[in-house]
Design a binder for these strands. Structure first.
Lengths: 256, 256
DNA sequence: CGTGACATTGACTAGTATCAACCAAAGTGG
DNA sequence: CCACTTTGGTTGATACTAGTCAATGTCACG
């Protein structure tokens, strides 16, 4: 709201130079500055925060958090996309969500309850768990923000349970396309994208399958089916045009 | 700097006697006094809190929160069990979780994102959403507690997504039985119950099916199968004896 | 131009849903 | 008190969705 100004004039007592440099180079102009956690903080708070963070750059494919390992850190995504997943010993995998700029990773418990992997080159802020605790005490606004984010996470989880437990393959794909459009802010929450809206889809078919509880073959067939029906177009593997969003919505919610 | 303290205190000087009486009769000796939200508060805080709450008793089967309705209240369960679910227009239903003593219901958004129904006779504390906001400002410990609870909720949701997206019917049933044992505190978190542990199962087969993303027939068949294999016993519809928990765990996590 | 990774399409199979019969326990009413 | 109904659960036969296995296609890259 009022946080667009430069940070120069507001100074915390300690570690200023390092923190300020860090904040200037990595926080103030960060892609996530007005998303998620950081959006809940003022510029001066951010400078302080920045001192507690380590800034990491990871290559695509990097597994940086693994289910069952001791939980040492928590992360805030700056840029790129991360997949969160659980796996069974025989290799079956369920992606439980995707984390983009401003999203948190690794808040729960003494152990990591989930694995996290960069899908593209990713930049992250990393905090120690102890650091998180003191941050929460230091900045109560942060706690409120975290609670909001967690609530939203729960809602998304419930929607996904409905999808995984009760929807058919075609319904899953249709639901996914619409929710992904919302995620990309192509349309407002609860609204349909306009006809012919173009979606960029950084996921592989394997990711899609593991997110929707299907196989890649079924994903492929379902997409082909929607294409044949004239509801979507697939100009390239990572792009989908939603020709008739309303028709997709009808399938997604089994209306009519 | 932050909005901490901006919401005016609603401490009503006159209503204290009423509140105190209410706390004594309904909070201090409440079944949920040392669970969930209430466990985060001191006795005197609880007295205050009690003034903001309405105490409700609902019969089994009562639908008291409906997906899509404006979110007016939030609830804290005192006794009994509540099922939370989402449904599709054609009647398909997915139960996303169960709320027992100390659990919260209805924290997210302007609309209810989920429906809630009493499974047995249930006692609840009901708060207005405005009341919740002021409570959070008044008792920061509450916010921390809520965050903890929300985190746990997210972890459970992720486990359920793995179950719904990737496990077979037999694996789902086995997983469920073990997680239900943990819920009933028959064994510590992450531990197996002892052989021959007895589980009380207030759910109908329909609830079980809608929770596990199966049909009642498949639930029934899977239970029969486990019985035939000698892994469980079913002395009555609402009781199950876990004869060989380790074998169940092997199935649940597809080990071996 | 060949190679390898990823995606699509086809043929067949398996696991779960569906449809239907049967069963047991718990009311309900004459 | 006992037939009758209702409700919820189990078991069986069959159908169908999605999974598996395999061949083919496409595209990026050396």
């Amino acid at each position: 709201m009022s946080n667009f100004g430069r940070i120069a004039s507001l100074r915390p007592p300690v570690a200023i130079n390092l923190a300020e440099r860090s904040a200037a180079s990595s926080c103030g102009d960060c892609g996530a500055r007005h998303h998620g956690m950081c959006d809940a903080l003022s510029d001066e708070e951010l400078i302080f925060l920045s001192g507690a963070a380590q800034h990491l750059s990871l290559p695509a494919g990097k597994l940086f958090m693994e289910e069952g390992e001791p939980a040492q850190y928590f992360y805030n995504v700056n840029s790129g996309t991360v997949r969160l997943f659980k796996a069974l010993p025989d290799g079956r995998r369920q992606i439980t969500g995707f984390a983009g700029p401003g999203h948190f990773i690794g808040l729960a418990g003494e152990m990591n309850m989930i694995s996290a992997e960069a899908m593209e080159p990713v930049r992250l802020c990393r905090f120690s768990r102890a650091g998180l605790r003191s941050m929460l005490t230091e900045f109560p606004a942060l706690e409120r923000k975290l609670l909001d984010v967690a609530m939203h996470e729960i809602v998304l989880g419930q929607q996904q349970m409905l999808l995984l437990g009760r929807k058919t393959a075609l319904e899953r794909i249709s639901s996914f396309l619409l929710s992904w459009a919302q995620r990309q802010e192509i349309c407002g929450p609860g609204k349909l994208p306009r006809p012919h809206a173009r979606l960029s889809l950084p996921l592989s078919r394997t990711d899609l399958a593991d997110y929707l509880g299907l196989t890649i073959e079924t994903v492929s067939r379902s997409l082909s089916h929607l294409k044949k029906q004239g509801l979507i177009e697939i100009p390239s593997i990572h792009e989908i045009v939603l020709l008739r969003p309303q028709a997709l919505a009808d399938i997604a919610e089994a209306a009519g």
